[in-house]
């Protein structure tokens, strides 16, 4: 599949049909998960009550932004080793979408924490290590885009950015460990903050109501499809831009 699509013209043909399908399907799936999440499923009696309905936006975006960074690192790796031009185009296209979803995850988490932990922004920032990791992920995306924008030639930008994405990826586990460690010692009140903060990510194994999980998966699938459609759109515009630039260069050279 990947090597089949590595050919740009085949990618153009595939994406022309795939983008509308992924877009429409994504909207339907996100809509379905939100409809069920907001209107159908019962409020969580154990924790959060109606507030946990925020999860159907927040958690898919959290999964997705991590997946998008992995995708960025993966396509950087493919480009670095095999020099598939399309892999670099993909990396370029993933970065803004990934940054957008990372920002969404952080902001929604912050709003949720405001109510869920009831003690304002400062406590939230100190209180939740996972949200802090998301913020650092946002900076990784931001640095990646800034580096690409700063380097003048395309080839140089691609190589430097690929190195940065790969180095960033192998650092993520260490960042995660360090931020977790920092949280356990900075938090002063081991009250509900920790219990809410900890129960949510492990909800799958701590017996989360399967109706919730199902809607989370619908939302995650829908947002993934939407992100894929956007990434393919940006990839298409990159390829069109490249062709246009080549035409322009030919014209200027020829006349």
């Amino acid at each position: 599949m990947i090597s089949y699509l590595a050919n740009p013209s085949r990618f153009m043909g595939f994406s022309r049909r795939a983008i509308p399908i992924a877009g429409v399907l994504g909207i339907l799936m996100v809509g379905w998960s939100l409809y069920n999440g907001l209107l159908v499923v019962p409020p969580d009696e154990k924790q959060g009550g109606d507030l946990m309905r925020a999860m159907f936006t927040h958690v898919p975006s959290a999964w997705l932004c991590m997946g998008l960074y992995a995708g960025l690192a993966g396509s950087s790796f493919v480009w670095f080793i095999w020099r598939h031009e399309l892999a670099d185009v993909a990396a370029r296209a993933i970065a803004p979408i990934g940054a957008g979803y990372t920002a969404l995850c952080f902001v929604t988490g912050a709003i949720w924490g405001q109510k869920g932990w009831g003690s304002g922004w400062h406590n939230l920032i100190l209180g939740d290590s996972r949200l802090m990791s998301v913020l650092i992920l946002f900076f990784l995306f931001l640095g990646y885009m800034a580096l690409r924008a700063a380097l003048e030639t395309r080839q140089k930008a691609a190589r430097a950015a690929a190195i940065l994405a790969m180095v960033g990826f192998i650092n993520i586990p260490i960042i995660k460990v360090s931020v977790d460690m920092w949280q356990t010692t900075t938090i002063h009140q081991p009250s509900s903050v920790l219990s809410i903060g900890n129960s949510e990510p492990r909800s799958e194994d701590s017996g989360m109501n399967p109706v919730y999980l199902q809607q989370l998966l619908w939302g995650f699938g829908g947002h993934s499809l939407l992100a894929a459609a956007m990434i393919m759109l940006i990839m298409r515009s990159e390829i069109h831009d490249q062709r246009a630039n080549r035409l322009l260069a030919q014209k200027l050279g020829g006349s």
């Binding site: 800034a146 580096l147 003048e152 360090s178």
Partner: peptide, 24 residues
């Protein structure tokens, strides 16, 4: 990574920031 960028100070800070977190 930003050796060929003329005024790279802020760029270096932004790029390096996430990598400083664990040691910090």
């Amino acid at each position: 990574l930003s050796a060929s960028v003329a005024r790279a100070g802020l760029l270096i800070a932004l790029i390096a920031l996430p990598f400083y977190v664990p040691a910090l």
